[in-house]
Design a protein around this nucleic acid. Sequence first.
DNA 1: CAAGCATTCTCATTGAATGATAAAAGTGCC
DNA 2: GGCACTTTTATCATTCAATGAGAATGCTTG
Lengths: 251, 251
Amino acid sequence: MANSKSGDSSLDRLVRILGAFDADVPSMSVGVLAVRADVPLATAYRLVDQLAAHDFLRRDSSGAVRLGYGLWELASRSSSALTLREAAMPFMEDIQAVVGQHTQLGVLQDDEVLFIERLSGRDSVVNQARVAGRLPVHRTSSGLVLLAFSPAHVQEAYLLRHPAATVPGDAGAGDFRRVLARIRAQGYAALEGLVDEDTTGIAVPVLGPGRTAIAALGVVVARQAVSVHSFLPALMTGARGIARAVGERRG
Amino acid sequence: MANSKSGDSSLDRLVRILGAFDADVPSMSVGVLAVRADVPLATAYRLVDQLAAHDFLRRDSSGAVRLGYGLWELASRSSSALTLREAAMPFMEDIQAVVGQHTQLGVLQDDEVLFIERLSGRDSVVNQARVAGRLPVHRTSSGLVLLAFSPAHVQEAYLLRHPAATVPGDAGAGDFRRVLARIRAQGYAALEGLVDEDTTGIAVPVLGPGRTAIAALGVVVARQAVSVHSFLPALMTGARGIARAVGERRG
DNA sequence: CAAGCATTCTCATTGAATGATAAAAGTGCC
DNA sequence: GGCACTTTTATCATTCAATGAGAATGCTTG
């Protein structure tokens, strides 16, 4: 029989199980997990065992299930993310030291921005929790930068999938394309109050081959903070440094 | 029919595929992947498709397969790792600023140390590549600290599985237990030339409930570096800070 | 101890996954 | 162009690993 619902492979079920965990519900009983992941109880127990064998899941003494380090370890092999992270880290530290604010590195994943690294000073304005793992492209400076510096066909595809995408501060329901063009022209994006009312996000692209963004480097500062332009040099320098470092590791 | 070899579930096969990638071979053709993961070619194509649907794998224009960000994203939900990482980061930065050397945070996974965070100064002595994602417990200061500050039954279980475990510098094929006891007594581990001939690793435990190590905080310095004791205060302070920060996030 | 979960077992059923094979679509080389 | 090669998609009969319902056994908790 295998499955009840159509359109889910065994992998889908496994992902649903792993995906049932998040920051709010980091651990749960197998019973709850079965419901959240929508799999029969008996099956849930079997799958949990399998996943636990690879330390994707872990069971504590009280029987609750939580994520293990198996995923983390596999993810660490992802050289693209790892290389980028490691190459970027020193530069991010520099930037953080200079601007003293939340600094982050994001990449494009599907139609969202996945932040693969963040440095948050103890006194940064941004609320940690609100800077989630993923955010919609048109809701962050980093996302807009990533899109603006993507190949034309990627942009078009995105616009097709998100016809209603707009940038709040911009020309009403204005032309999203024009926003992207301007960002590409000026080489950075700076937007107020997107993620949070009181913050401004500033992001620049980390450019790879063909003037395409392989990542976005951004900071989040208080809205009333000094001119955006005062942050740009550090960001630009950092982005260039990262791009060079990544290039070297590949060559 | 499902599978040929006994003792591998579908999950095992998926893990073998994902595990076929590492820093040395970050991308490969499906054909090569099939060989490395030991699955029939036709099956490999199917599994790759499935994994790509979740962005666990990604295919570039030339057809080569590489790891995607899906794993990374799932791993980020692992609140234990994430909480620890985020709580630790500011303290690690402090330490790195003071000692100016490679700083790392490790946790116990199976019988190895998994480093979930590292800060490597541009001028640190250690060779990045040699500080891999995982290392045997008795081959790193961090590992020894983690073991020394584990519950007695965990230690015993480890000793049973690794009867031949010794620490090079120590009393010949001396009593491993005694080494652990001393580490626990003095509150830190400092070992020369374990990972690398010319380096010394120093690690202290990040203590959780019940004086048990939830992580190890360590630095790697040049062997001839100034006295170990000059690094300890910073490490100890950092470890205490992390422990407190982690505790707060849970309460 | 009764009620409620959590957990393990059994087991008949079956269709999802498998993998051999073949064909089609590149890719490069002479 | 033709040849050798690899990559990729497609077909399809086979089958056993995985499934899920249910019963039985533990384990708390009030």
